[in-house]
């Protein structure tokens, strides 16, 4: 170790400043978020089965409703309810499916309601397909071009639960004209409680 007062040299300062600059440059140029945080998004359409590694996901049906009814409760939409029926088939082990979110064409996001027997999450094990109904209250201008994003990881805190994990994004297939008619329709949907998925007839059985 050298003794005496340490000098501030041009060389030393340059080394420090250069190091800091290089570090900043690295942090800003290398897109860390995309490396560390981007989920593996699997895209599909209604009726398609998506392979999310930990589960097979199928959005079986998309409906709209002004009123949702279950045996204990009726819920009225502030906008209109988008009712998304989906089946989960776990492929690795017992899994909780926490993420459910609709994104509209503008990028606004909507979360499901737990009113009137609708689910906001699901649990399933391998060996069977589990049917769940998600209900999202959305405004009129959110219908056209909306997509639903379902995953085992939650979407709160900027999809923190889905980092480096698969998420299914399904186009609801609502065009601008569809949106108009869907908005004007005054449907009532009787929700089904989650259960084993069967090749069900159109509509709800109970």
């Amino acid at each position: 170790m050298r003794h005496g007062r340490r000098r501030i040299t041009w060389k030393g300062s340059l080394l420090v400043v250069g190091g800091v600059v290089a570090g900043c440059a690295l942090v800003t140029t290398v897109p860390q978020e995309t490396v560390v945080e981007t989920p593996f998004v699997v895209e599909g359409a209604v009726g398609e089965t998506l392979d999310l590694t930990y589960a097979d996901l199928t959005v079986t049906e998309v409906r709209v409703a002004d009123t949702l009814e279950s045996f204990s409760e009726a819920a009225q939409a502030g906008g209109t309810f988008v009712v998304v029926d989906a089946t989960w088939r776990a492929t690795q082990g017992a899994t909780s499916f926490v993420g459910a979110e609709i994104t509209d064409a503008e990028g606004r996001t909507f979360w499901p309601t737990d009113q009137a027997g609708c689910s906001t999450s699901a649990k399933a094990q391998p060996g069977y397909a589990w049917h769940v109904t998600y209900c999202f209250d959305v405004p009129k201008d959110a219908l056209a071009g909306a997509t639903v994003r379902l995953a085992r990881g939650g979407q709160t805190e900027e999809h923190a639960g889905q980092r480096r994990d698969a998420a299914g994004v399904v186009d609801l297939g609502i065009s601008a004209e569809d949106a108009k008619t869907l908005w004007e329709a005054t449907e009532t949907v009787t929700t089904e409680s989650p259960g084993y998925a069967t090749a069900r007839a159109e509509g709800s059985e109970e």
Binding site: E73, A75, R108, W111, P112, T113, F136, A142
Partner: peptide, 10 residues
């Protein structure tokens, strides 16, 4: 019913 979530635009 109990409100839990307020979605945007509604």
């Amino acid at each position: 019913t109990t409100m839990r979530i307020l979605n945007p635009g509604v």
